[in-house]
């Protein structure tokens, strides 16, 4: 079965979604990430969705689930690179992705995860919003 590759950089996991995300592929990514976080003791997960042309409610829910599972496994998740048109559409659709930390690009996302791992401030403050 097709799989989205997960890269490891130190204690962080990095995923770049560059294919059309069908439902089973999204669920496979959720399972794979959960396993890798636990196996490696990862402290952070960065998901780059800059190549995604749409995020519908299924993909949005999967991203939220990944963030929730990671949190239970003591890892932070940050979703980066959302296209402005995708953000506008998501909000109009009715999904504002509460509980998901976002950053504009990979650099800012990595910075956030590194700070989070060393107990920097601004960590996880909105994860209790739901």
């Amino acid at each position: 079965m097709e799989r989205i590759p997960i890269l490891r950089i130190g204690s962080l996991l990095l995923v770049t979604i560059q294919v059309d995300l069908y439902d089973d592929l999204a669920l496979q990514l959720q399972d794979d990430l959960s396993t890798r976080i636990a196996d490696l003791g990862a402290t952070g997960v960065l998901i780059d969705i800059s190549a995604l042309e749409i995020v519908d409610s299924f993909i949005g829910r999967t991203l939220a689930n990944i963030a929730a599972i990671a949190r239970v496994l003591d890892a932070e998740t940050v979703v980066v690179g959302m296209q402005p048109a995708v953000a506008i559409t998501l909000v109009e659709l009715g999904m504002s992705l509460p509980g998901i930390r976002t950053a504009l690009n990979v650099d800012l996302g990595m910075e956030y995860l590194r700070q989070a791992a060393t107990g920097g401030d601004g960590v996880g403050t909105d994860h209790y919003a739901e």
């Binding site: 749409i54 995020v55 409610s57 299924f58 048109a85 559409t89 659709l93």
Partner: peptide, 17 residues
């Protein structure tokens, strides 16, 4: 427009699902 494209494709994805 890109925004219209994104909205319509997203609606299509929801309704097809």
């Amino acid at each position: 427009t890109l925004i219209d494209q994104t909205k319509i494709v997203t609606a299509a994805s929801e309704l097809a699902r």
